[in-house]
């Protein structure tokens, strides 16, 4: 296959992935908009005014970047893990595996699908947020870079989960018991400066803290952590997960007998 044919194959996977989640938008795009609206109502409008300022901003403005980031993380991850596992379960992953598509193209196609869903849901949640607070952008480049890279990272994580998953349980265990706690403890609803020193140190081992804070810096110009460190960590995770996923796909782990 030549470059043009690779692009056709990549485009086919992306279109198929995007069609898949847009066809079922009531299950994929609407629920995060509803649940994030509830977050804004409960934490922002009802509890927020009693909390006062955080990081120098109204509580609603402070949590908005984190809530947007949470929806991006959840949806980019969920898209790839459910789609890849579904393809394995229904065995139509074989359609791609028997074709001369390199694994890097398969990976890129699925990851792009995850990024598109993450960004689309992030956009919808941002629109919802505008009904509750004014959003200012401190640095557009940082905002877009962090959003894109975070969606990519969690799409890769979703693919990794999908590769290893053999049962439906396997695609819910990681999001429920690992991803959700990391997100909630990643500084979405609070500044880690509020935590005792020990827990501040523990929090710094949570990669989501860096993404949430980098995004918050892009929006508000404040962050609990160094922005360069955040980008280095995100990129290192992306490289590591890409390498691991490609290694597993090349070995046929989770996709071949």
């Amino acid at each position: 296959m030549n470059t043009e044919q690779y692009l056709i194959a990549y485009n086919t996977i992306v279109v198929k992935e995007v069609s898949r989640f847009t066809r079922i938008w009531i299950q994929t795009v609407l629920p995060p908009a509803v649940s994030m609206t509830l977050y804004f109502i409960i934490f922002g409008s009802l509890i927020g005014p009693r909390i006062g300022k955080m990081g120098g901003f109204d509580y609603m403005a402070f949590i908005s970047p984190g809530i947007i980031m949470m929806s991006i993380i959840n949806n980019s991850y969920a898209n790839v893990v459910s789609s890849f596992f579904g393809a394995k379960y229904q065995r139509h992953i074989e359609e791609i595996l028997i074709a001369p598509v390199p694994y890097i193209i398969i990976l890129a196609g699925y990851i792009t699908g995850g990024i598109v869903r993450g960004l689309l849901v992030g956009f919808v949640v941002t629109i919802v947020a505008l009904f509750f607070t004014e959003l200012h952008v401190h640095n557009y480049f940082i905002v877009f870079a962090v959003v894109f890279l975070t969606a990519m990272l969690f799409s890769l994580a979703g693919l990794l989960n999908g590769i290893f998953a053999n049962r439906f349980d396997d695609i819910t265990i990681i999001p429920t018991f690992i991803l959700t706690p990391l997100i909630y403890l990643g500084g979405i609803f609070y500044s880690i400066e509020l935590l005792p020193q020990f827990w501040q140190t523990v929090s710094r081992f949570n990669p989501i803290l860096y993404m949430v804070n980098a995004f918050r810096y892009g929006m508000l110009g404040v962050s609990d952590i160094n922005i360069v460190t955040a980008f280095i960590i995100i990129i290192l995770f992306i490289l590591a997960l890409t390498g691991l996923c490609l290694f597993l796909l090349n070995r046929g782990i989770g996709i071949k007998t």
Binding site: Q5, Y6, T12, Q90, H92, E95, I96, P100
Partner: peptide, 20 residues
């Protein structure tokens, strides 16, 4: 081993796409 949610034409065209 095809997607149960796609049309016949989508299934065949997607396969063509995988072959470039």
């Amino acid at each position: 081993n095809f997607s149960q949610f796609e049309t016949c034409q989508e299934i065949v065209l997607n396969q063509a796409g995988y072959y470039g």
